[in-house]
Design a protein around this nucleic acid. Structure first.
Length: 283
DNA sequence: GATGTCAATTTGGAGT
DNA sequence: ACTCCAAATTGACATC
């Protein structure tokens, strides 16, 4: 609570602008660096390297971790797939190599962030809860860039006394929350749009019915080709209504020049209203 | 105890 | 092979 109460991430809200699973993913990815979804290049250089030696030692530490975790993990069901091993490598080596040796034992067995434990004096089993200050800093950072490059991740981790992996997870979850909220916003907009269109459709249907009723109520002579007298509702000019099913070709010419003499002497063939040549559109 | 929140985990796809 | 990420899920914790 309070963490994402305000979704003021600076994201542009709007239909068609929300990130879809695919373009969102592509928008934030670049070949050799990380870029946020606004395409701001943060750090073009991506240098994450490990020597084989340090990798081995840290992986070995991870093995110890595995045992420890299975007894102290808050979930207790971590499976440690191959992906998990990769994670361990990242957590304990990849980003914070200077403190990896120091923290391996500590982090591995306490499982929960030690700073948290220090602050609140809770057991290692208690779930980590970021402090308000940590959340605030992360939020600020997220406002600047919704993705992190390794350097930024490491800096944040050091600043907040968290593991880089925790920072990374926080950003992942934060992006997920942002997207969820965006989806909700889009859904609301679509709902309103649908309501508007439904109303408009209803109105047009009614208008059509009124026109039909009006047409039926006219005397016989008014049943003469009505389309020849179509009047543009906006400019109130008489239109030719040409191009209809019955009046292809000479229809328009028949109206031109003869209109002033009256409808009866003009039209020789019935003409039908063609919505695609609606005089209104021509105005 | 039902529910919501959130950190953490798992899985799978994409890029290199 | 490796990294990064999104999406789905799990489980601890808070709130009512």
């Amino acid at each position: 609570m309070g963490l994402d109460d305000s979704c003021n991430t600076g994201l542009v809200l709007g239909l068609g602008l929300s990130p879809t699973p695919n373009n969102y993913n592509h928008a934030i990815k670049k070949s050799s660096g990380t870029v946020d979804h606004r395409l701001i290049r943060l750090d073009p250089s991506l240098t994450l390297s490990l020597s084989g030696e340090s990798y081995k030692t840290k992986t070995a530490a991870g093995a110890g971790d595995q045992i420890c975790r299975q007894t102290s993990s808050h979930s207790g069901i971590s499976s440690f797939s191959s992906g998990r091993v990769k994670r361990e490598r990242e957590i304990y080596g990849g980003d914070g190599e200077e403190e990896a040796e120091e923290t391996t034992e500590r982090v591995v067995c306490s499982r929960v962030s030690d700073d948290h434990e220090d602050e609140e004096g809770v057991s290692a089993r208690k779930k980590l809860r970021l402090t308000k200050q940590q959340s605030a800093v992360l939020e600020d950072s997220f406002k600047l860039h919704s993705t992190l490059n390794p350097k930024q991740k490491q800096n944040l981790a050091r600043q907040l006394n968290l593991r880089p992996r925790q920072v990374e997870v926080w950003f992942q979850n934060r992006r997920a929350r942002t997207k969820l909220k965006q989806t909700e916003v889009d859904c609301e907009i679509l709902k309103k749009c649908c309501e508007t269109l439904t109303d408009e459709n209803r109105r047009l249907q009614k208008e059509l019915q009124d026109l039909k009723a009006l047409k039926l109520s006219q005397p016989f002579y008014m049943h003469m080709p009505a389309a020849t007298l179509t009047m543009c509702p906006s400019c109130e000019r008489l239109g030719g209504g040409g191009g209809g099913a019955g009046g292809v070709g000479g229809g328009t010419a028949a109206v031109d020049g003869e209109t002033a003499k009256g409808a009866f002497s003009i039209v020789t063939k019935p003409r039908f209203y063609n919505p695609f040549t609606n005089p209104s559109a021509a105005c």
